[in-house]
Amino acid sequence: MRRIISLFFTVASLAINGQEVDYDSIYFLKNCIVLDARESIDEEREDLIYKWQFGDGEVDGGETVEHCYDSLGTYQVVLSIIDPSIVSQFQDEWIFEITISEDYLIGFDIDHSDKTISCKSKLTHDSNPDDMEFFWDYGDLQFGIGDEVSHTYDSAGNYTIRLLAMVTEGDETIELSASQTIKIQ
């Protein structure tokens, strides 16, 4: 007799963009998830019907499915496994929550006195990037590199300081930017 043993999912709030969880049946790629229920049965059962409800009105079928969410938020995912020979579910539905959230937030702090500024990047992230680089545009055709920089302006005026962060995670590079306008007197 073929029977279901258990369904292996991590039932928790999770982040996106490649972050792995305890069991690799769920992982994230941008705002997309891959759900895999193949390990949930003790024998091959090609006749079982897997029905996934993703909590955003979308439904899909199959042992393994990929789904992309249009917006950030917490979603209730429901899996039903149906045995067509008895037209019934094996057990109750499996219900768990997935949270799709921003992995990276960028900003920077500026301290200035007279015509000299000091800038420090603020990058928060949920995953462990392989590499991070920071590039600064001071708004006066001068540029800097590093997570902390300083610069002296030649003249007074309003300047827009731009920070570009390039975050490498695996073979993917993510570009983030932030800007602030300051007045130098």
Rank of each mutant, 00 (worst) to 15 (best):
M1W: 08
R3H: 14
I4W: 09
S6H: 12
L7H: 15
L7A: 09
F8S: 11
F8P: 03
T10N: 14
A12P: 04
S13E: 09
S13P: 15
I16L: 07
G18C: 01
G18Q: 03
V21E: 05
Y23R: 11
S25T: 11
F28R: 06
K30L: 13
D36Q: 03
R38N: 10
E39R: 06
S40N: 14
I41E: 07
D42K: 12
E43M: 13
R45C: 13
R45Y: 03
E46T: 14
D47L: 08
L48S: 03
I49T: 10
G55T: 04
D56W: 00
E58D: 12
E58S: 12
V59I: 13
T64M: 14
T64S: 04
E66Q: 09
H67R: 00
D70Q: 13
S71H: 10
L72R: 09
L79K: 01
I81Y: 00
P84S: 06
S85L: 05
V87P: 00
Q91C: 13
D92K: 09
W94A: 08
I98Q: 03
T99W: 11
T99V: 01
T99H: 11
I100N: 03
E102C: 04
Y104K: 07
L105V: 12
I106G: 00
D109V: 00
I110E: 10
D111Q: 14
D111C: 05
D111W: 14
T116V: 08
I117W: 01
S118K: 05
S118F: 02
C119R: 00
C119N: 04
C119E: 08
S121F: 10
S121I: 07
L123G: 04
L123Y: 12
H125L: 13
N128P: 12
P129W: 04
M132C: 14
F134P: 00
F134K: 03
F134Y: 15
F134G: 04
F135H: 14
D137T: 02
G139D: 06
D140S: 04
L141G: 04
F143T: 09
F143A: 00
G144A: 04
H151D: 10
T152V: 05
D154M: 07
S155Y: 07
A156P: 09
A156S: 14
N158F: 02
N158D: 15
Y159S: 03
I161R: 00
R162T: 11
A165E: 06
T168L: 01
T173V: 15
I174E: 08
S177N: 15
Q180I: 01
Q185V: 13
